[in-house]
Design a protein around this nucleic acid. Structure first.
Lengths: 167, 167
DNA sequence: TTAAACTTTCAAAAATAAATGAAAGTTTAT
DNA sequence: ATAAACTTTCATTTATTTTTGAAAGTTTAA
């Protein structure tokens, strides 16, 4: 397999994986492209490589920057903007997990708390509901906190964790 | 908030969360419904509660059973089939992570391996590509193995892990 | 074996999400 | 202040995913 083919395969795969995890395909593809580029890439080049429109490129770059995993870069004497991706994988994982926690887990926890604290009447049905949603609340809260703690390690947290868990 | 309202809110929230994580809304809603039901539910009842068609119910129940998180149940003297969800959250998390690993992570790893082992010529660009995709391969492999180990604990693995990591 | 009671399948329709592209908005050099 | 070079926005179009529902399939009881 030659370089160009490999690069394309990687970008496509990363895009597909993104969709499966609720991240839009183009956003994941742009990220993939930047991750494996050794230098900052202009919007023009991104558009050309991925065959996407200007608007699409712009919107997804904005989204990636909101997630904190892609940065704008300015080159001396160049009017146009260039983009780079966070390339440190530990840092990337930390940022993604922080954002997803903030955007999705935290709001879900809020709802879980609400519904698990209703006044359960005497019916078995209602008791089971309160019991199950309470357990779910605890579980999700614990998992969310753990993710936080895990990634808080900083500097090769995944490697360290593996050691800690194995031992 | 009264029971019916809370139940509906929970089902809707779980459905929305599902979509955000690449699981279709109805599938997540059916799962939510079964999770908080204290007894097995018939397809008719699922259709009525979620206002969905027979085909939709049938397909998503099949998918949930394929994931191993919903079971068919037969009641004596009843022709129809009833469904229940895995209610143990540790077990649920284990099954979901196993399936996603098998369906998504493992195939992605295969591609990562392929593209990271191309013959890198002398250009900085190609070297960076091989370097970055190799790192990604290692990272994903390590994370995948860790998930496996984590959930292998069995019996309240999350609680135990929290202890282990905190200490 | 038949028919009633139920489930599954899948082509078509509907709903949802993503992409386009032209117009509006910015920035910078002169 | 102007215009060239570039980016963003958003109404519309396109693509993708999900849902429907009717027909085909299956199981069970008599």
């Amino acid at each position: 397999m030659e370089f160009k083919e490999a690069k394309n395969k990687f970008v496509q795969t990363w895009g597909a994986l993104g969709s499966q995890w609720g991240i839009n395909k183009t956003m994941a593809q742009i990220h993939a492209l930047l991750m494996v580029s050794n230098e900052a890439v202009s919007m023009e080049d991104i558009m050309a490589e991925l065959q996407i429109s200007r608007g699409n490129a712009s919107m997804n770059l904005r989204a990636l920057m909101d997630w904190g995993i892609v940065y704008k870069e300015y080159k001396a004497g160049e009017r146009r903007e260039f983009f780079t991706a966070e390339k440190d994988l530990d840092e990337l994982a930390v940022k993604i997990s922080r954002e997803r926690s903030k955007r999705e887990i935290k709001p879900a926890l809020k709802i879980l708390k609400e519904v698990s604290t209703i006044e359960a009447k005497d019916s078995a049905e209602e008791k089971h509901f309160v019991d199950q949603t309470s357990k779910l609340y605890d579980f999700v809260l614990k998992a969310d906190n753990m993710l936080d703690k895990m990634t808080e390690f900083n500097e090769n947290w995944l490697g360290r964790l593996v050691l800690k868990i194995m031992k």
